[in-house]
Design a protein around this nucleic acid. Sequence first.
DNA 1: ACTTTTCCTGAAAGCGCTCTGACAACAAAG
DNA 2: CTTTGTTGTCAGAGCGCTTTCAGGAAAAGT
Lengths: 352, 352
Amino acid sequence: MAGKRDSESGPPRPTSFDIARRAGVSQPTVSRALRGDPTISPITRRRVEFIARELGYKVDKNASNLRGQHSQTIAILFFEDQRFNASLINPFFLSMLGSIAGACAKRGYDLIISCQHLSNNWRVDYEDSRRADGIILLGYDDFLTYSAELERLVDEGTHFVHYGAALERHPGLSVGCDDYAGGYQATKHLISLGRRSIAFLGSASDHYPEFFARYRGYCDALRDASLPLQPELQADSVSALPDGEKATRAILASGKNFDAIFAASDLIAIAALGVLRDHGLNVPKDVSVVGFDDIPHASMVTPPLTTIRQDTQLAGEVLVETLLKLMRGEAAEATVLPCQLVIRGSCGGASA
Amino acid sequence: MAGKRDSESGPPRPTSFDIARRAGVSQPTVSRALRGDPTISPITRRRVEFIARELGYKVDKNASNLRGQHSQTIAILFFEDQRFNASLINPFFLSMLGSIAGACAKRGYDLIISCQHLSNNWRVDYEDSRRADGIILLGYDDFLTYSAELERLVDEGTHFVHYGAALERHPGLSVGCDDYAGGYQATKHLISLGRRSIAFLGSASDHYPEFFARYRGYCDALRDASLPLQPELQADSVSALPDGEKATRAILASGKNFDAIFAASDLIAIAALGVLRDHGLNVPKDVSVVGFDDIPHASMVTPPLTTIRQDTQLAGEVLVETLLKLMRGEAAEATVLPCQLVIRGSCGGASA
DNA sequence: ACTTTTCCTGAAAGCGCTCTGACAACAAAG
DNA sequence: CTTTGTTGTCAGAGCGCTTTCAGGAAAAGT
């Protein structure tokens, strides 16, 4: 008996040579027949296909990829501010994962994922090691932290697309939703509900491009309604629960009265909901709250959160389609996707 | 000017030959040096490493994998009952994704993901085509639907691990939490709070092995407290919001009084929370609610959900470690992980 | 001095596939 | 009966790496 067992080996995987022998053709013919090459006669193709199915033959991706100098794989990289929320990925990006996976599958690409984080020596070398033909970058983080990495990717000629606001100075290509319009819309809705002192929770600095654009939308909506912009009613927060709670407590502590909150993300809005309740404030009677993203949680909290929905289904499609263009060397452009106000209970307007 | 641009090619990727030439050694030496082969002298290794870094050399995974007849990749497959929740993956499994990704990265494995669904001709052929060396299966679904597929995987000698209850008749290896103990614990806690009519939401049939085990725990806790098992207070539900709502309405409609609900998953529990509120019932005053999983949502709903926490961090580690053992041909066993009662507001006990 | 051992490196093979160029086989045209 | 296409298949090369085996140089033993 052999000392080391070879994991129930069974019959060795059939190769294209095995199929060729059985079909009485050469090995390259098998390869061509199976790939639908038109120079192979239908009769031959039929026979090869039949035998291949019979033997359970599957093309070896490693060999095929090595020969073809590609990987037929796209990598998705989650990066996020790691000061909070240890191993948790923002649910918003998670919900995009499904649609990206679908979009890849539809096009015959595999999807490999990584949750590496910028903090500790982030090295995007999937493409370097030919593990992926292109990369999708997902996350909210301080722009300064990752723009250098992006720059490097551009320099190295790596194919990648980033989801988020498309700044002019942003290295590489971005696909994102219309954050500005979303911010404007959310604020305008609050105003139309009679709210006059609207707080903004989320970074107002351009280190967080998405949040910044939403903030500008908020400012402009205020201005267009001739409402004053009150700096005391803005508090920084990244998209994480503990941070959102801190920000809410900050505006509460400011002593300034407010009757509405526009939060730059649902996670922040949900955090605000809890703090508000703890302070004996009723939502939406005392304070209207609107979030951003429409993560799955949004409809489950009490009251259900009014928010700006980003179409993750569409975003996923556009993201991989754009990346594919880039990979083929075709011209590709940054895309701004529309977003949509979803009215639920937290703003006091008509509930859907 | 060339008609077709070749995507800003730049200098071609360096190969181990390029490094070899520059270092004045042979190509195999480069390969060995870079992999830390002890037969290479430190001086040579140092030189090779330096030049490799200088040229930005990265091992071509395709070539390496082809030669080594493996892929250094693990595939993760989400499958779930698709009657509800279209493109959404159960948040519980999503939260496991992060830990699995981490566990794979730590061991030098890539992770490829697929959200295919059993419904339409599910074929797991990652291993067949050598894209993955092993597979992790994640999801709640009718056991009957997928056990045949599992059977086939076993027959083909595919290496895989499934997360869920480990039934004796379950094909392949499972890692799961102690669903029975969790169900028992949850129910016992409810009883200790003085609740006497405890409903169970979730399938009581063995088509859903995890739910079934939780149900048995529930039954035994009832029995040990000499409480009657009331069939009217059990309603079927798979882990999805609409289904949970339907189940809650069903027990409400039964006319039977109840003062507590043990839901087989947090998603069901959250659905119950909403329906209960709509019926003017107060949680936890009128009805205590306990869920299962401790998904991120659980702590965000109102009131925060008391639940049984599954340790996703640990589960991820054990899952890949078990799979790795299988892949190496070592003996591996099904594992049952402990789970833990997390007391929050929804049960009326001491809040954490 | 020569043989033996030890240490380090190189030549060559080959993983399974795809692609280029050549070549039979046959039909149509000169 | 040769020439020119056309069609369907094949031989061969090679993608970049790892591995086995053999061999040269230095260190040690006789």
